[in-house]
Amino acid sequence: MSSLPVTRIDARLAKLRDEGRAALVTFVTAGDPDTETSLSILKALPGAGADIIEFGMPFSDPMAEGPPIQAADIRALAAGQTMVKTLEQVRAFRAGDNETPIVLMGYYNPIYIYGVERFVADAKAAGVDGLIVVDLPPEEDEELCLPAIRAGISFIRLATPTSDEKRLPVLLKNSSGFVYYVSVLGVTGVKSAAAGDVAAAVARIKAHTPLPVMVGFGVKTGEQAAAIAAHADGVVVGSALVNAVRDSLVDGKATAATVKAVADLVADLSAGVRRGRS
């Protein structure tokens, strides 16, 4: 085991384990509301308290997203975001931060069109640590999961309330980094789960894997984050952050308040996560 290179994700999670606290995983959409502001947001996240960053690759047809992230994707694409720009942003971020893990999250088609081998090579070189691809279940692992793992990029899987005892081993098989537990049935940004249900689900998943379990869907406030953090290795927040972007815009354009709006919410969530286990 000791011969395996330690990834940024593993290193960060080990550090948090030593600190005895849960991780705050923040999702923002690349290129939302425009390339430049998006990079400023990305750079501001660790300082505000984000432990791991999920960076959304915008897609025209995000089938598992609710209205907030759909709107963020539309804003990003309208502003001209492309896969090349998303990877450039990661590279620019890495120049100033070589520790905070970045996980690219999105749908398969833009990766497929970019070219799988080219994508994993360019993502690795840019400093991407993991991938979450919503529409690639383990049944399609040859597509991207196995090439990503070969390139040294973690492939993070979503577990859901429908992941039963039979399904969990299948979906955990080629998983690495952490497991993202989607705590409710449904799209992002609509419902949220009860903390009690979350505790039971996390225990169920942990019976099948040593990987840390992050819990997301519907977390909007520091208080909710604290409640989840008590039961999970980390809390994922996305829709609330892209809504903070949306609410800061004037006539669809970024303002002086945009980056700060996101950073303030991240700080509140981070405080919640830190409270969670005390």
Binding site: A64, P137, R157, T160, V182
Partner: peptide, 20 residues
């Protein structure tokens, strides 16, 4: 048996739907 017609077809859906 995995739903492929040559390279086409397959099951590219969110994990929530896979058991169903």
């Amino acid at each position: 048996e995995r739903g492929h017609f040559g390279i086409f077809g397959g099951r590219y859906v969110a994990e929530t739907l896979m058991p169903l």
